[in-house]
């Protein structure tokens, strides 16, 4: 009780209520919300949610974009900017945000079909689709279906991480699937965690 009273007194005396401004990385990450949503929780379909993304994966993505290994005319300059600001703080900020699954509607039939087609994916991304840091595979669950579909198409067209030998197997797999199946897989993984 006494502790509570002291805490209340301290709070009242503080010059500014502790708001998000005091969260490490908040200021360095707030440019990102223009495309990725508040605190990285996107409401859009074609960009990934960053909220709750493990720091190791966000840092890898920033490194790959900045170096041109993952070609993106939009993300390459911004990744260089994030690196000048401090990628550790930015990645730490997003990792600490509550994960929110995409609200973009997915077709139930597509989800069922996608689940049936997902066995190969599960070998690397896990049965639950949550990814595996040891294998370097990201969590796919709850990401917007449009973003997931576009990434698969980019792999298929050798436009995402072109020439990266460690990703040969996923590209071969994507090339073996038609676009309708890719859309089913996107719907399935997006539906997980909702």
């Amino acid at each position: 009780m006494r502790a509570l009273v002291i805490a209340a007194a301290l709070a009242a005396a503080a010059p500014a209520a502790a708001g998000p401004i005091d969260a490490p990385g908040f200021t360095k990450a707030f440019s990102c919300s223009a495309c990725h949503g508040r605190a990285g929780a996107t409401r859009a379909d074609a960009v990934p949610s960053l909220a709750g993304m493990p720091a190791w994966y966000l840092k890898k993505a920033i490194d790959d974009y900045a170096a041109g290994r993952r070609p993106s005319p939009e993300m390459e300059p911004f990744s260089k900017m994030v690196k000048t600001l401090g990628v550790d703080e930015v990645a730490g900020y997003f990792a600490a945000q509550p994960r929110e699954a995409s609200q973009i509607k997915v077709d139930r039939t597509a989800v069922v079909n996608g689940r049936a087609a997902s066995a190969t994916c599960a070998a690397c991304h896990g049965e639950d689709g949550r990814g595996d840091a040891a294998k370097g595979t990201p969590d796919l669950t709850g990401q917007p279906p449009g973003y997931l579909l576009n990434q698969m198409k980019l792999f298929k067209a050798e436009k995402r991480s072109p020439g990266d030998a460690t990703l040969t197997s996923i590209k071969v797999f994507m090339k073996s699937l038609d676009d309708a199946t890719l859309a089913d897989l996107a719907a399935y993984y997006s539906s997980l965690g909702r």
Binding site: D45, A46, V47, P73, P77
Partner: peptide, 21 residues
């Protein structure tokens, strides 16, 4: 940096940008 050209992918990104911003 400029996009190398025009595409439906960038149009999707444009819509995502508008929704978010």
């Amino acid at each position: 940096k400029l996009t190398p050209g025009q595409s439906t992918l960038y149009a999707q990104h444009a819509t995502a940008w508008a929704t978010s911003i």
